[in-house]
């Protein structure tokens, strides 16, 4: 129950602030990617810095390297980056955009769902490297 409440409040704040930051606005995001407007870059640099400070205060063990550098990290990152430039969306963005009335995000959301579901069977059959977790 507590998890549901925390994730509900977190989702609400995440959706609201991503929208107020301009992260769900393709024009604003494209402006960041071509370095025409650095404001959102500072948002992320600042968020990273604050998170680092917070995690340092909470528990230093969180900084132990636990995430495996597996062969999917680089190609996966490249594919994600290419998709991000095309549709302007990291996975949570189409949901927020739908809330804002941007109905075209239905296509983005459908694509994200298809891509997400497509990966695991391909990993099981073709890639098969150890990701270091039981998650797909």
């Amino acid at each position: 129950m507590k998890t549901t409440l925390v994730l509900g409040a977190g989702g609400l704040l995440l959706g609201f602030s991503l929208s107020r930051i301009g992260f769900t606005d393709y024009g604003e995001l494209h402006g960041m990617f071509i370095f025409a407007d650095l404001r959102m870059l500072w948002v992320f640099a600042g968020a990273m810095g604050l998170c680092m400070l917070g995690f340092l205060l909470i528990d230093r063990r969180l900084f132990r390297p636990t995430r495996r550098v597996h062969p999917g990290v680089v190609p996966g990152g490249i594919l994600f980056g290419a998709g991000w430039a095309l549709c302007g969306a990291c996975p949570v963005v189409p949901l927020v955009q739908l809330g804002e009335g941007k109905l075209a995000a239905l296509f983005t959301l459908l694509g994200v769902a298809v891509g997400t579901l497509l990966y695991r069977p391909l990993h099981a059959r073709i890639f098969r490297w150890d990701t270091g977790t039981c998650d797909s």
Partner: peptide, 18 residues
């Protein structure tokens, strides 16, 4: 948008995060 979405979904799963 559909194509970009597929790349985002597939890529984030492959990289293990977004």
């Amino acid at each position: 948008l559909l194509l970009g979405g597929v790349l985002v979904g597939f890529g984030t799963q492959m990289a293990g995060g977004c």
